[in-house]
């Protein structure tokens, strides 16, 4: 049993460009390098000796890695080291990707958000992370940069198993891309925890819907979950149950039941699996309802 210790001994590298970072990472053994962005998780992992890198590569000084930029097609590219505070403060994010801003503000407090980064929250590959569900339902892809260049991977496919990502050992997460949201779409993220703030998520549910005003129905829906399976996950069968339906109580109940079947929440000292399932059931319905209300509140809105 390890008590919280001082940091382990490591060498420090402070690259200033992304190519320097990829060069530092290239051909290193697993665990040899630690990429330090905000550090809110990584510092603790080192203090608990869960990670003892030879070299810490600090990302705070990498030029341009923290950008938040609109693309010509209306999509958004967010650099991996953009802080949660920067996301929450970005008018672009608040106006066009409200779901992301909403999820960001449910993480930690001011001090943590001032340093924690979107890349850290995603690349940690933890099932309890709050941004991946929101980003998944927004249709995010992640940009992986390696010595041979960059590639994009859908976030849905980024978490093959608990605490692991689809990145190759010499690749680093450089950016997150979000497509332009469809007109009449909106989402919400509901995080359940025991207090009002600061807690680890017991269950998190992101719902993103595209509203068909003519049919008064859900044209498209995406659902994603934190702490409901070994990885953050989409619930595609549950989405299929609701797609094209009016969000009646029965339709929402059927969708939520399907989500309960698809997810596999675990029992731990934090919460029982059975309780998490109840949360999934309740919060799925609530999140979809709220997303529909939001989408209807901005009919025909071309974001």
């Amino acid at each position: 049993m390890t008590y919280l210790r001082r940091l382990p001994k490591f060498a420090y590298a402070g690259p200033t460009t992304l190519s320097e970072v990829t060069a530092l990472v290239a051909d290193t053994a697993p665990g040899e390098i630690l990429l330090l962005a905000g550090g809110t998780d990584a510092i603790l992992q080192m203090r608990r000796r869960e990670r003892t890198p030879k070299t810490v590569v600090g990302l705070k000084g990498v030029a341009g890695l923290d950008g938040i930029a609109e693309e010509s097609d209306g999509g958004l590219t967010i650099g991996a080291t953009a802080t949660l505070a920067a996301l929450a403060a970005s008018p672009l994010v608040r106006r066009r990707f409200g779901l992301l801003a909403e999820a960001v503000l449910q993480i930690g407090g001011v001090e943590l958000r001032n340093v924690a980064t979107i890349g850290g929250n995603v690349a940690g590959a933890l099932p309890c992370a709050d941004l991946p569900p929101a980003l998944m339902t927004l249709g995010a892809k992640v940009k992986l940069a390696g010595p041979k260049g960059a590639r994009w991977v859908a976030l849905d496919e980024f978490f093959p198993e608990f605490s692991r990502t689809a990145a190759q050992p010499n690749e680093i997460l450089a950016a997150i891309g979000l497509p332009k949201p469809a007109p009449g779409s909106a989402g919400t993220y509901l995080k359940f925890h025991d207090r009002h703030s600061m807690d680890m998520t017991v269950v998190g549910v992101a719902a993103f819907v595209t509203w068909d005003a003519k049919k008064k129905a859900v044209a498209e829906v995406r659902l994603a979950y934190a702490n409901s399976a070994p990885t953050v996950m989409r619930a595609r069968q549950a989405e299929a149950v609701l797609k094209g339906q009016a969000p009646s109580d029965d339709a929402l109940a059927a969708c939520a039941e399907e989500a309960c079947k698809e997810t596999k929440p675990r029992t731990s000292w934090r919460a029982n699996g059975a309780y998490r399932l109840e949360l999934i059931r309740a919060l799925t319905k609530r999140a979809i309802r709220r997303a529909c209300e939001k989408a209807q509140a901005r009919p025909g809105d071309a974001p």
Binding site: M1, R195, H196, S197, W269
Partner: peptide, 23 residues
């Protein structure tokens, strides 16, 4: 303070939850 077989499972101020200003 949650203990399993005598081991404290939540020895941190994140998991040992005291009231915050928002509570």
């Amino acid at each position: 303070l949650i203990r399993v077989d005598g081991k404290v499972m939540n020895p941190s101020l994140r998991d040992y939850k005291m009231p915050l200003a928002t509570d």
